[in-house]
């Protein structure tokens, strides 16, 4: 029994431009939710509305079953796409200030900031102005800013962009730990391999609408399955007569086929063997990247 973050039918338009059309999804407690889509698809707008930084034209954001309020929003840890900290304020002082804006007492804020700067490896920069830090360390401070108030919800816009591989690992670990604590975590990213590896569920947005939302497994299963057959003696068109099977590529001995619904892969194998020896026969599931590409270009409606 966890506390979910629900985005329910949220719409937003800027003048004549529709940014969000009935955006709906939920992030369950203890779940890592990946939010993917092309630039301008509406990811940032959705997150800003969840944070109350932008007002929605319609729809509702709920947390724990109740509409989110300015007070419950203080439970959210937020990392905006446009990174921002006071450049001339010292790291420690700045994080304590941000924690206090989230409602922490001075001592609790100080304690929590010590803990997170320690954990993220920027503790020794406590008294340095943010502008004097390297970009990587600024990113760590930014992450600390999202975590110092011990948030019950995490909303991170492109948290991995601009991170070096070590920082990516640190970030991944932190997100997984938070999710393990029962926090719903939603983040957007263009690094689909990372999303595929980390996320329990993924939502794909296109033109302000959620077009696919499920576990990575289910999404991939829902997508098409391809077969790669290497049969050196097969003539072009050897598989044309098979029901629900489309030939995508035929290049010398190698044929790539797409299996439609109800297609029988064993029938394909028999047909291939009928042409002569078969040196390779493999089932190839779509990667998230391929799935994403086909979804956002509108080829497949999942």
């Amino acid at each position: 029994m966890g506390r979910r973050l629900e985005i329910d039918g949220v719409s937003k338009r800027y003048g004549d431009v529709v940014a969000l059309r009935e955006m709906t999804f939920d992030v369950r407690a203890g779940e890592l939710f990946g939010f993917v889509g092309s630039n301008g698809a509406g990811k940032t707008t959705t997150m800003r509305i969840a944070l109350g930084v932008l007002a929605a034209d319609g729809g509702e954001v709920r947390w724990d079953g109740a509409p989110i309020t300015p007070t419950t929003r203080r439970h959210i840890g937020y990392m905006p796409e446009e990174r921002g900290l006071y450049p001339k304020m010292k790291v420690g002082e700045q994080l304590v200030y941000l924690a206090r804006l989230h409602g922490l007492s001075p001592s609790a804020a100080e304690r929590s900031v010590r803990e997170w700067t320690e954990r993220l490896g920027v503790a020794q920069r406590w008294d340095d102005e943010v502008q004097k830090l390297s970009l990587g360390n600024q990113q760590r401070v930014q992450l600390a800013a999202a975590l110092v108030h011990n948030p019950l919800i995490l909303v991170l816009d492109e948290p991995f962009s601009g991170l070096d591989p070590v920082a990516v690992d640190v970030m991944s670990t932190v997100l997984k730990d938070k999710a393990r604590d029962g926090v719903p975590v939603v983040f957007s990213s263009h690094q689909l391999d990372l999303v595929e590896r980390l996320c329990d569920r993924v939502g794909i947005v296109r033109n302000g609408q959620m077009v696919a939302c499920d576990t990575v497994e289910a999404l991939r299963a829902g997508g098409t399955t391809r077969l790669v057959v290497v049969a050196p003696q097969a003539e072009p068109g050897w598989a044309d007569h098979l029901p629900n099977v489309t030939v995508r590529e035929h290049d010398g001995a190698r044929t790539v086929l797409e299996l439609g619904e109800g297609a029988d892969d064993q029938a394909v194998l028999r047909a291939a063997l009928a042409t002569g020896p078969v040196t390779e026969f493999s089932r190839h599931r779509q990667s998230l990247t391929e799935l994403f590409r086909s979804v956002v270009t509108g080829e497949v409606a999942a």
Binding site: R48, V53, Y78, E82, G84, P87
Partner: peptide, 17 residues
Amino acid sequence: VEEKSSRVVELLLATIR
């Protein structure tokens, strides 16, 4: 303008009005 140009304003407005 400092808050706007450094974009920290988004972080602040996520907590206060």
